[in-house]
Design a binder for these strands. Sequence first.
DNA 1: ATTAGTGTACTATTTAACTATGACACTAAT
DNA 2: ATTAGTGTCATAGTTAAATAGTACACTAAT
Lengths: 127, 127
Amino acid sequence: MTIEFDNNLPIYLQVMNYIKKQIVAGKLKPGDKIESVRELAAELQINPNTIQRTFQELEREGVVVTRRGLGRYVTEEESMMMRMRKEMADQLLERFVSGMKELGFGERDIVALVAEAVASGSDREGK
Amino acid sequence: MTIEFDNNLPIYLQVMNYIKKQIVAGKLKPGDKIESVRELAAELQINPNTIQRTFQELEREGVVVTRRGLGRYVTEEESMMMRMRKEMADQLLERFVSGMKELGFGERDIVALVAEAVASGSDREGK
DNA sequence: ATTAGTGTACTATTTAACTATGACACTAAT
DNA sequence: ATTAGTGTCATAGTTAAATAGTACACTAAT
């Protein structure tokens, strides 16, 4: 379990996204206990202070809940999950489409390229 | 002519992308003169040193050519343009598709969402 | 009470990005 | 020769991110 770090983006933001994705994808479910600050820091080889900041932000966003002395847990608010998923997807979509248009790609090109990219490197879907 | 700056990404990288997009989209053509360091700095309200760094990187990548005392010009290498366009599109595509999959979207969903997003907010294309 | 595992807080240091300023070298036009 | 507009370089200072190390408070289990 490692993260590919992009040097041009703050680490704490990248870890935030890493956690969010795990939640949205269902790998972390509402109420699940999250790794401790020190554990995650050791695992990702990051300073504990940086992980602390990561979780502070996630708590500010309402994604996780802290029980002092016990640990951190994924929020039980189901609506939060759906909202997060939609927000993150919308952002990905918007950036991608506007980016491609800025490169001069037409609408048909964009759809075709996605269809192609999505097909390669994956099994055939059921009917 | 302004850039929407994202605080989480270095300015010089954002300006680099801004220039590259202009070239790839044909708004800047091979051999075209580019705004001077001081001009662009004033226009974007950025320190000239930051713009200088932007262009240093662009030159290192072979995107622009410098004629000392004269100014900077878009490279004449046509192949460079095509390569850049493909590289930037591939990167956008890859990040988008892998991002959506990490959020738990299926292949059909992804294509459908793009088709929808691409259609809204744009004129009807000719046949 | 003690212990181990939590979150939290604080100070100090390093590094990269950005800014602010000033100066110098080259080129073309006058 | 002078001038204006280029790119280039150098020094210094500010800020945010990340690190390093230490310490404290809370909780559950023993």
